[in-house]
Computed example of a mutant assay.
Amino acid sequence: MDVTIKSLDGKDAGTATLADDIFGLEPREDILQRMVRWQLAKRQQGSHQTLGRAEIARTGAKLYRQKGTGRARHGSARAPQFRGGGKAHGPVSRSHAHDLPKKVRALALRHALSAKAKSGGIVVIDELKAAEGKTKAMVKTFADLGLTNALFIGGAELDANFTRSARNIPQMDVLPVQGINVYDILRRQTLVLSKAAVEALEERFK
């Protein structure tokens, strides 16, 4: 699959051939769904918790005698039906993460890249570098390129000026190639790859 490489100022900077085994697969929605679900479950905080009756700091004495009062046979003020008692079946701190095979995760990334390529949502830039870290200048650059909702994937190390100028722009994300993931690819309309990112991805899946 051949694509035109562009520079940040909108000029053509040559062509590149994208590997068909990474960018040319027929996307499978079931694999992408499993991967997104795995990512969202893994990052879910899961720290919400209430106190059960065993954790309430309250007297353990019996409320009143067992028989002869005409009332119910209560034995603890920590019971859920009393004000100040423990919560019945409340949430507890836990991890929401579940397992997903490493091969499925790798396949999902290739399918996500292929889905973007099939929809025409991939742009290859020669270098993600900016002369100065000014957001106003970068907004104009993105507007000239026709980018309104994009994920930028740079090389192993990102240019500080480019990152600084792009990070405050709404609906624009910047990640190094090590941080590329299915969820961020799918949530943005356009995937912008640097030449270094394309080479790193092809080396990774070789």
Rank of each mutant, 00 (worst) to 15 (best):
A137D: 13
M1V: 13
T4M: 02
G85F: 03
G121N: 10
S76C: 03
V124M: 05
M172P: 06
I153A: 01
K11C: 01
K102L: 05
G75S: 15
V36W: 07
K116T: 10
T135S: 04
Y183N: 05
A77Q: 15
V182S: 10
S114M: 04
H96M: 12
S47Q: 15
T17E: 13
V192F: 00
L40P: 00
V192H: 06
M172F: 12
V182D: 04
V3D: 00
A131L: 12
L145S: 08
R34F: 13
G24T: 04
S93K: 15
R71P: 11
L191E: 04
G146I: 01
R164H: 14
S93A: 15
G155R: 08
L51G: 07
F82A: 03
A131C: 12
K116E: 07
D126Y: 00
G10V: 04
L193Y: 00
R110G: 01
S165G: 02
L40R: 15
I185H: 02
L51A: 10
R71I: 11
F205A: 11
R71A: 14
E203K: 13
V174A: 05
S95N: 14
K206N: 15
H96S: 11
D126I: 04
R28W: 09
G120C: 00
L201I: 09
K134I: 12
V174W: 04
E55M: 02
S194M: 02
A57S: 12
T163M: 14
A131T: 15
G75A: 14
F162E: 06
G90T: 06
V124R: 07
D126F: 04
I31C: 01
V92T: 15
G24R: 00
L18Q: 06
E203H: 10
D12I: 10
A13I: 02
P170D: 11
G10W: 05
D159L: 00
I180E: 09
G70H: 03
I125R: 07
L63T: 14
F205K: 07
E199S: 12
G179W: 12
F142V: 03
R71D: 12
T148S: 14
Q66E: 02
N149W: 12
R204V: 11
E29N: 14
L113T: 04
L113C: 02
V177C: 10
F162V: 10
I125W: 01
M1A: 07
R71S: 13
K103W: 11
V192L: 07
R94C: 06
I5D: 04
Q33W: 14
S93G: 09
A16Q: 11
G85N: 01
E132A: 15
A41V: 12
E203Y: 09
I22P: 01
M1W: 07
I125P: 08
A143G: 06
R105H: 08
K134L: 05
K206L: 06
K62D: 11
